[in-house]
Computed example of a mutant assay.
Amino acid sequence: MNKMVAGAALALLAGCSSISLPGSGSGAPAAPAPAPIGASTAPVGSTCDAQGAQWAVGRSSTAKVVEEARVRAGARMARILRPDQAVTMEFNGERLNLQVDGAGKVTAARCG
């Protein structure tokens, strides 16, 4: 009985999927998928250079500012560190850390 239910569920899921192969469909090229928010444009294995993100100090930590600081630093990822926030302490040379004050203004930009 459980195999029948699992089989039916699998069949339903398969009916919801679609695979588009090159050359199939309307002939129009498929539009590229938008990059997810926070997706890195830095090359794989890049090393963060905090000097590039120093312009963010004193600015509000909006998503646009954080992303621009990440890109300028060449980091693969960025995180915001708020006052009294518990954070992991492992060093990651591909990560930009933006320290912010209680108002959300960037007070420091460091790698790690």
Rank of each mutant, 00 (worst) to 15 (best):
S18A: 11
V44N: 10
V65S: 01
K64R: 07
A53L: 01
G25T: 08
R70I: 00
E90G: 06
G7E: 12
A103R: 13
T107H: 00
G102R: 15
P22H: 05
T88I: 05
E90I: 12
A42F: 05
D84L: 09
A108K: 12
S18H: 11
L21G: 10
A109C: 09
V65R: 06
N97Y: 06
L81S: 06
T47G: 11
N2K: 10
A108W: 02
G45T: 06
S46H: 08
Q99W: 08
G52D: 01
G15T: 13
L10C: 15
A56R: 03
T47Y: 00
C48Y: 00
A53N: 01
P22L: 12
F91E: 13
T62S: 11
A33I: 13
A11E: 07
R76F: 02
A73F: 02
C16P: 03
A109W: 04
L98G: 04
G93K: 15
T88R: 15
L98S: 07
D101Q: 11
G58S: 06
S24C: 11
V71S: 03
P29V: 07
C111P: 01
A86F: 10
Q99V: 12
A14P: 07
A35S: 15
Q85E: 15
A109S: 05
G7H: 09
P32V: 10
K64Q: 07
P29F: 10
T107Q: 08
R110H: 07
V87H: 13
R95F: 02
P83M: 14
I37V: 14
E94K: 08
A35H: 12
G23H: 08
N92T: 05
M77C: 06
I37P: 15
I19M: 15
R76P: 00
L12I: 15
Q54V: 01
P43Y: 10
S61R: 10
P36T: 09
C16D: 08
Q51F: 01
L12C: 15
L81Y: 03
T47D: 06
P83R: 14
G58K: 03
Q54Y: 00
R79L: 05
A108D: 09
A73L: 02
V44H: 07
E90C: 09
P34T: 13
A33Q: 09
F91H: 07
T41E: 08
C111E: 05
A78E: 00
S18V: 09
S26Y: 08
M4N: 09
I19T: 14
G112I: 01
A6L: 12
S18D: 05
R70M: 04
D84R: 11
V5F: 01
S40I: 04
G74I: 02
L13M: 14
T47K: 09
W55S: 02
M1G: 14
Q54T: 05
G74N: 05
A35N: 15
